[in-house]
Design a protein around this nucleic acid. Structure first.
Lengths: 210, 210
DNA sequence: TAGATTGTTAATCGATTAACAATC
DNA sequence: TAGATTGTTAATCGATTAACAATC
């Protein structure tokens, strides 16, 4: 399988397709690129091209069989296998992610939380939050590959270093800190401030053109 | 002031510059595009071009005076004025955002939370979470322009409609639902599943090339 | 056949990169 | 002057869009 480079935009669109096709009523047997594009407000040709790239179930006049398309997208995104992750951070901050169910459909399971400050384990949603002293053992035992960082800024790099040392291969960073990782580790920054900036900028543009 | 269209990528980089320049030690008087590029692992020419676009304080051989640069970036991002927002969702999910201090530097203040299920107000961090019945009055009183949605998927569109009806001009959507908003409202989707997909895809690529 | 749709090939657009002139 | 740096102009690259042929 020649895995061509997937552009960021296409990856984003693909997730949106998956979500949309899954949300269609059961009785919908087929769906066309045209309809998807209309429903989601995307360019028709973009959608057609994306679908052609990730599935060959397209049939003239009919479109794609919904069930096949879902399978093809999931296989394209490789979300059939779930990766396990731990979440390291400060107490209050973790609640959201530990509780957010949307991750599992994206192939990520947050197994447990780790708290920088507390020394006693406690529960949150249906997950357990442990003190940092348990981290090493936990990662080794459950073979965790992804670490999520939600620590205060001043601790972020330290937490990152610990996770890398313990063998984590991917870091999902929610702090605004620019982390340094060795080359074999993948760093994904979740820059929430960027979304705010985008939102504000668009609102400003809209106001100006009125 | 001719506000040229800013590309998404440049906007993202700009936030990173701001963060980086702010983190420099006090005694650093000047900073050059070259040094920023090196420190952040970005292309030198990109950085130079970005800085030229948002500031004219660049001096040959010296670079940019840090303080001026910070001011220029902040003015470019228009973060001097803070916009007020409310956060509507389910109890556990809100904790993170209500507690996250990083937003204020991006010009966003989450004033209060609203809970779809609870009927009694309570506190979280130093913010208050109200029942939905108080939403209308609150938005009107404080002239809230941004609504953040963290509701369960089935409630998302309903919450969105309510916010729009009450006069909100920007929606920051954390649910995976594809929301529909009228043309005068700006919708910013925070698609966390995309980050997971990116992270996983990169990790996969790295493993394959080993 | 006509129409809806796919999928491909060519054209356009925008962003990044490369090359270079200007300046202190 | 030499070197570091800025800022601009031209070249490259990639993604989107447009046009069109193929198919059921």
């Amino acid at each position: 399988m020649e895995s061509k480079k997937v552009s960021n935009n296409m990856l984003a669109r693909t997730l949106i397709y998956l979500n949309y096709v899954k949300s269609l009523p059961q009785e919908t047997k087929n769906i066309s690129a045209t309809k998807i594009a209309d429903a989601l407000g995307l360019g028709e040709v973009s959608v057609r091209k994306d679908l052609a790239k990730l599935s060959d179930g397209g049939r003239c006049k009919l479109g794609y069989p919904c069930q096949d398309l879902i399978k093809d997208i999931e296989s394209f995104l490789d979300v059939e296998s779930t990766m396990k992750a731990v979440l390291v951070g400060r107490g209050e901050m973790q609640q959201l992610l530990l509780d957010y169910s949307g991750f599992e459909t994206a192939g990520l399971e947050i197994v447990a939380g780790f708290d920088l400050k507390c020394t006693k384990k406690r529960n949150c949603a249906d997950k357990t939050i442990y003190p940092m002293s348990k981290l090493e053992n936990f990662i080794r035992t459950y073979d965790i590959k992804i670490g999520i960082i939600m620590a205060p800024e001043e601790d972020a790099q330290k937490v990152c270093d610990i996770l890398v040392k313990l063998g984590v291969e991917g870091i999902w960073n929610f702090t605004p800190v620019h982390l340094t990782v060795p080359e074999h580790v993948v760093l994904q920054n979740e820059y929430l401030a960027l979304s705010i900036a985008k939102l504000r900028m668009q609102m400003k543009e809209k106001q100006e053109t009125r």
